[in-house]
């Protein structure tokens, strides 16, 4: 449809403050398609204003003030958006596939990170919340690096002391409803690493799914 072609100058002529408004109803992917099409547009859509709007749209669980705080620890709002897009599907409550185990993991924002906490239900007395505060223990933390990529740490305990163990995220599907934690023994590593599996041998695989949340909680 050659008659329908309009020059890129038309887009480039739009003032800086209009792009964030237009792109706020687009997905990060759409914004990037514009940027990849030519260097001129890439400059325009790489602005912090455009990506702040993107973060704001995604970060439903984060107040604006948090976004502004987190921005200080990353190279740009684009980097922050990359992190948020990645961890977004994980946020919220996950329950064990087998309700009889009663495991509940709550994934919530930390600082430039998200933390998965297990509610220690074994310690909840017959009076539930009226008995006292919920006890919880961090299970994992996903930290945002300067460029928006992620680092994964598993929390554990050894001889009474708290440890964190480095790990990695394989992938996060946008529509995922199963959270899978795997710990593999690493024989070639030093003692600390070898001890990791022992913390988890009872349940080396934890399947939690978010469907039927309401039914179970």
């Amino acid at each position: 449809m050659p008659s329908d072609i309009c020059g890129s100058s038309l887009l480039l002529a739009l003032p800086d403050d209009i792009f964030p408004v237009i792109t706020s109803s687009l997905s990060p992917r759409d914004v990037c398609s514009l940027g990849i099409s030519c260097p001129g547009l890439n400059d325009v859509v790489s602005s912090d204003k455009v990506w702040f709007a993107q973060c704001n749209k995604l970060g439903i669980l984060l107040p604006l003030s948090t976004l502004i705080e987190w921005r200080k620890g990353v190279s740009s709002y684009k980097a922050l958006c990359r992190f948020l897009v990645n961890i977004h599907p994980l946020m919220g409550i996950w329950v064990d596939k087998h309700p009889k185990f009663g495991n509940v993991v709550y994934v919530m924002p930390g600082f430039l990170s998200v933390v998965g906490c297990r509610i220690i239900h074994e310690k909840i007395g017959p009076l539930y919340l009226e008995d006292g505060p919920i006890l919880w223990r961090p299970v994992f933390e996903i930290i945002c690096k300067y460029d928006g990529s992620t680092t994964f740490f598993l929390h554990g305990k050894e001889r009474g002391a708290e440890y964190v163990y480095p790990g990695f995220i394989k992938s996060v599907d946008r529509n995922c409803n199963v959270l899978l934690l795997e710990v593999e023994p690493m024989d070639q590593r030093d003692e600390i690493d070898k001890d990791v599996p022992q913390n988890w041998t009872e349940r080396p695989f934890i399947h939690l799914c978010s469907d039927d949340r309401q039914k179970l909680l």
Partner: peptide, 25 residues
């Protein structure tokens, strides 16, 4: 703005270039 965004939504890089007559430099 929403209408303009609608035009650009879910389009590939190739489509963007064709639609806006962008020369890939």
């Amino acid at each position: 703005s929403a209408k303009i965004a609608q035009v650009m939504e879910k389009k590939s890089v190739g489509w963007v270039r064709r639609k806006f007559g962008i020369e890939n430099d």
